[in-house]
Amino acid sequence: MEKRNVTSDFILLGLFKDTRPHLFLFVLVMTMTTASLTGNALTILLIHQDSRLHTPMYFLLSQLSLMDLILVSNVVPKMAANYVSGMKSISPAGCGLQIFVSVTLGGGECFLLASMSYDRYVAICHPLRYSVLMNWRLCWQMTLGSWFLGAADGLMQAAATLSFPYCSAREIDHFFCEGPMLVRLACTDTSVYENVMYICCVLMLLIPFCLILISYSLILSAVVQMRSTEARKKAFATCSSHLTVVGLFYGAAIFTYMRPKSYRSANHDKIVSAFYTIFTPLLNPLIYSLRNNEVKGAFTKWLGKCRILKC
């Protein structure tokens, strides 16, 4: 096949077609995107402004919202612009940026969720020593470590993916650049790279997941030993939001990166990618706000301030 220079643009086939049902789906996705950006931005604002939320638990939650905010901004605007304008091209630099940002946020969120599970473990199993075991220095170290590990993985994958020569067929059957989809267009043997990336993705998923399992095993053991029914309910309420988010994130991630090639299809990949890049970032602030009285209280307080300022 004819090889093209790496500077040639790629073509994103997109998520929607030029039909009335797909136009409706596009409007629905844009509505969800607006709600997602608003919800995550509002979560960050409330945690920043309300002094009652200035704790490691809510700081980690604000970082989760920040990651979701960037993830949606990395994918949806380009997808929307391509659909509206009909121009489906994306430059290699833009493609590399999308791969870097999406992998950075995916890997970073893995470790951030593990950090949040440790925070819940300390809060429930060692409440009297919480300020010592979960101090601000450790909180910052875990946060920066999550961003750094995700960025290292993202930089490696983006650089390696764009280093391959690509053929004349530059059409990516997706709505944004993902490494596995892009590598399929390479005009060289990529089996070694794919095996290394597969192992890397598995480790990035399984190491934090094992830490989460250990934390919640210890939490479950502690909850079972509690004599007070009220204490048990409070402990479960504290953990339920985080467990729901972990289930959504890891369900989509495992389905995306740990399936055998024989079970993969472009349509399935696009649906799952839409779920974790658009739908999950919308659900996360809703899950934490609807099940958290402190967040709802901060939101009520913020609304009261806005009304006073308008008056």
Rank of each mutant, 00 (worst) to 15 (best):
E178W: 10
L162Q: 05
I172L: 11
F175K: 01
L185M: 02
P165G: 05
F164N: 05
I212T: 05
A186V: 02
R184H: 07
F176A: 01
T190L: 08
S215A: 14
I207H: 07
S217D: 12
V196K: 14
L206G: 06
C187D: 03
E178Y: 12
G179I: 07
T188A: 11
P208Y: 04
V192D: 15
F176H: 09
L218V: 10
L185G: 01
M181N: 15
D189Q: 09
C200A: 15
R184N: 07
T190Q: 06
L203V: 12
V183Y: 02
L220R: 12
A186R: 00
I214M: 11
L213D: 03
M181F: 08
V192E: 15
I219Y: 01
H174D: 05
P208G: 04
S168M: 10
R170E: 00
I219Q: 04
I172W: 00
V196F: 15
S215G: 01
A186L: 05
L205E: 07
S168N: 13
I219T: 05
I214E: 11
S163L: 02
S163C: 05
L205P: 07
I172V: 09
C201K: 14
T161F: 00
T161K: 02
I219L: 03
F209W: 06
I207M: 04
A186D: 00
A169Q: 13
L205G: 14
V202W: 14
L205F: 07
P165M: 04
Y193V: 11
C210F: 12
C187R: 03
E171H: 10
I212Y: 08
M181A: 12
Y216D: 05
C177S: 03
R170F: 04
F164G: 02
L206S: 11
L182R: 06
L213H: 07
Y216G: 06
F164R: 09
S217Y: 11
E171V: 10
L162H: 01
S163D: 06
V183W: 02
P165T: 03
I207W: 02
L213Q: 08
N195Y: 14
L182C: 01
F176C: 06
Y193K: 04
H174A: 12
C210I: 15
L182V: 08
M197E: 09
L182I: 11
L182G: 00
N195E: 15
L162D: 00
L206K: 09
G179W: 11
D189A: 08
Y193T: 03
C177F: 04
I212P: 02
L220F: 12
H174V: 03
L205C: 10
C201I: 12
P180D: 06
R170H: 04
L185E: 00
L206M: 12
